[in-house]
């Protein structure tokens, strides 16, 4: 059991949890993920690390409530426990001095881009961050991102806050404006695809962090397989970071939809149980 020491709602549907995990917090590196199981009947779901504190012995997870597991997670309070927590899994992001890098975080992807931006800045890069959300209510961590970026651009799809539009627009402007050495994009698959398409003509190395469906997270099941440059890779052990220009996005999109029906059935059942309780 892993104790939740603090919990806050970043937006009405995005939760931030600080969890006690001393050994894990000492090993965590930017870009890695953990697998959690909320309760005894729960699914194993991957969440990319949003932060960690080795001194305090905690890790920070950010999750958007989209299905049964993330809703269950959102219902937990400080003092409650996660049934299981395992990690750090996957390969850490490549962190070195590249020059000028752009970190793009879309929606809940702002959380995992944060420690990567921080690490890249610490490694001596000039970090330009672009974070975006559908609207003002879904935006979070602007302050945190500002602290680890030389320049921060904020967008909302509907213009309810900051610049109106998609993250790809300022991304393209920055690519036009000067030499960019690397782009890291984390967010919904469709956003990562379009960021990759945006950078392709400029030939700027573009890294995406794939949030595939997983079971064990250690290379055992192959559920998270993905085609990169025509070769099958496992997101859990070969990633989660991949070259965005090489990812076969059609397969990535399809494979995320495997359990759409079951996910809905499961959520309906859970929500009807919750109504009975309250």
């Amino acid at each position: 059991m892993f104790k939740i020491v603090a919990k806050e709602k970043l937006t009405p549907v995005i939760d931030c949890l600080k969890v006690e995990a001393p050994a894990l917090s000492r090993k965590a590196r930017a870009g890695q993920f953990v697998i959690i199981r909320v309760d005894e009947v729960g699914e194993r779901i991957p969440l990319t690390l949003a932060d960690w504190d080795a001194k305090e012995g905690t890790i920070t997870l950010v999750a958007m409530q989209v299905g049964t597991s993330t809703k269950k997670l959102g219902a937990l309070k400080a003092g409650d426990n996660l049934q299981n927590l395992v990690g750090p899994l996957g390969l850490p992001s490549d962190i070195e001095k590249f020059g000028t890098v752009i970190c793009v975080g879309g929606g809940v992807g702002i959380a995992p881009i944060y420690p990567i931006a921080r690490a890249l800045r610490e490694a001596g890069n000039k970090v330009i961050s672009i974070i975006g959300a559908r609207n003002k209510d879904l935006l979070f961590w602007e302050d945190r991102m500002k602290k680890v970026s030389d320049e921060l651009i904020v967008t909302t799809d509907d213009g309810s806050y900051a610049r109106k539009g998609l993250v790809t627009e300022p991304l393209k402007e920055k690519l036009d404006a000067g030499k960019i050495d690397r782009v890291i994009a984390i967010g919904p698959a469709v956003m990562m695809k379009f960021c990759s398409l945006t950078t392709k003509p400029y030939n700027v190395p573009t890294i995406v962090s794939l949030n595939s469906i997983m079971v064990d997270g250690t290379g055992m099941c192959g559920c998270c397989r993905i085609s990169v440059g025509g070769v099958t890779k496992f997101a859990c052990v070969d990633g989660p970071d991949f070259d965005g220009h090489q990812v076969d996005w059609n397969i990535a999109f399809d494979r995320q939809k495997v359990y759409l029906k079951e996910e809905k059935d499961s959520l309906d059942k859970w929500e009807s149980c919750q109504c009975g309780k309250s």
């Binding site: 009947v41 699914e43 194993r44 064990d216 192959g222 559920c223 495997v258 079951e262 499961s266």
Partner: peptide, 26 residues
Amino acid sequence: YSANEYLTRVNLMKAYLFPEYDTPIK
């Protein structure tokens, strides 16, 4: 599926008891 994934979903995650257990299987 790999057999590993298929069997893990069924045995370890108890997908045969879905939706009582949260893990699905096709």
